[in-house]
């Protein structure tokens, strides 16, 4: 859910905007290493993919449904820097062309949904992939845990921002419990879907999953005897 205009006061909005500008600037530098000269067309298509995935509804039951946020998924698939760029571009386009997320809250939204989810999702899954045995089958679970953690992490950053510059009069503890409780549930969904999607991609094109590169490089080529195949 995008933060609209007026949820946080003007100074906080401007401050998060400044932080978002710096973060996107750093990501622009880092992305050159991940995608070299293919950056613009590929990142553009990945951004379009993230946008499209957010329109796909996953039924939860009782007539309600949710959709993927895709921050951690993007990080695992194309790397953290490109992930930050893609999700940021998605948020800018959503704000300017669809009025989804306020223009003054754009910095806040980028900070929460592009930077926090991508960085937390990437960091957690990266650490897990390093710690776990090097098996391709373990990349998807690691990505799932990364995605699961990334959503409540973004919710806590929001709560912190709200404590600094919130405009509505709710007690912080009420907000914190509601936000964290609710987003832990959303995070579960995000984790399951990320697990399934990354698993599907790994079984078809494992070379496209950025987070699995190290694991695949260490894999030995096995040539099976004909009888074994038949």
């Amino acid at each position: 859910m995008h933060v609209p205009d007026g949820f946080l006061d003007a100074p906080t909005s401007i401050a998060t905007g400044a932080v978002a500008v710096v973060a996107v600037g750093v990501a622009l530098r880092g992305a050159r290493r991940e995608l070299d000269d293919k950056t613009a067309p590929l990142a553009g298509l990945v951004a379009a993919f993230v946008f499209a995935t957010q329109m796909l509804n996953f039924p939860v039951g009782a007539g309600t449904s949710g959709h993927l946020m895709g921050g951690a998924l993007a990080a695992v698939l194309v790397g953290p820097w490109t992930g930050v760029l893609c999700v940021s571009v998605v948020l800018i386009v959503q704000s300017l062309l669809f009025a989804d997320g306020g223009i003054t809250a754009l910095g806040t939204n980028i900070l929460l949904m592009a930077v926090t989810t991508v960085v937390v999702g990437w960091f957690v899954s990266r650490v897990l992939i390093k710690l776990l045995p090097k098996r391709v089958g373990l990349v998807a679970p690691a990505a799932a845990i990364g995605a699961f953690v990334s959503v409540p992490a973004a919710a806590s950053v929001f709560t912190a921002l709200y404590a600094i510059g919130g405009t509505a009069d709710i007690s912080l503890t009420t907000l914190a419990t509601a936000m964290l409780g609710w987003h832990t549930l959303i995070g579960l969904g995000e984790g399951v879907i990320t697990f399934l999607a990354v698993g599907a991609i790994l079984s078809v094109r494992p070379d496209l999953v950025y987070a699995a590169r190290g694991v695949i490089a260490e894999r030995d080529l096995v040539i099976k005897a004909k009888e074994a195949v038949a």
């Binding site: 194309v78 879907i193 990354v198 599907a200 991609i201």
Partner: peptide
């Protein structure tokens, strides 16, 4: 799609969409 049991099908579509988008980008 009615309940979370159908998620694997939808998630595979997400995966296919990513592969198609990425390859189109290339």
């Amino acid at each position: 799609a009615r309940n979370p049991l159908h998620w694997p099908v939808l998630a595979r579509s997400v995966g296919a969409l990513f592969i198609r988008s990425f390859e189109r980008g290339e």
